[in-house]
Amino acid sequence: MNPFQLDIEGLENKARSIRRKIIRLNADSPAGGHTGADLSQVEIVTSLYFRLLNCAPDRVTDDTRDIYIQSKGHAAGGYYCCLAEAGYFPEDWLPTYQHNDSKLPGHPVRQKTPGVELNTGALGHGLPVAVGLALAAKRDGSPRKVYVLTGDGELAEGSNWEAALVAAHYKLDNLIVINDKNKLQLAGTTESIMRTDPLDKKWQAFGFHVAQCDGNNVASIVETLEGLKAQGQPNVVIANTTKGAGVSFIAGRPEWHHRVPKGEEVELALKELADV
């Protein structure tokens, strides 16, 4: 059971709070950050950790807990802000992000940070490991669900499609892949660098049940994820998002892939993200 089970308004408030944390965390980072990627996934991780996931800070070793894997490991900052908001570790860890000897390094490390399930950072690793976790749960008759969040640029990594074959072959309907489809990657638009569209047809061809949602709208995410049924196929949810969502001067701008807010940008962003 999820310990929060927030309603839509509660999730929206949490998402805003997490966004404010993301701005401060990146502003305090001595080594830059992935602000755009952090912001695009906020509603997805918020919906998972505050409503959907059967896991809690006091159950991080429970064998039946649901597993969330942050395959787009470069958005560790956003992930950390969500975990801190949910109580997995003290919020005063956040200003140490990417500092020397921090428990919050630039990509997730499960040996360092409570709540992190898998060390990622090299792309295309989350889905194959999620397949193994889902397979183990199936064989044990466990109610566990395995969620894995990928970027859309990340889908150029071939290991994802090897794993997709295996997931469908073994009928892993306890596996839910979420593509944070923000349409931007390091060097520009995903469309211009390596096209993934039509993404839904690709997943369908690989044997997945495909759903789509507005990935920056908690109501849309919750409705879509809660509507998934175990029916002998792995699931993918294509979450259409905006990179840098929530802050007007970051949203949709590729230069914010590896940029952090500085000076008056911090105050401007926090002002936009204030509770109404």
Partner: peptide, 11 residues
């Protein structure tokens, strides 16, 4: 190898 790692994490 990735699947093996996941199976191991699954016990």
């Amino acid at each position: 190898v990735g699947t093996a790692a996941g199976l191991a994490l699954g016990g």
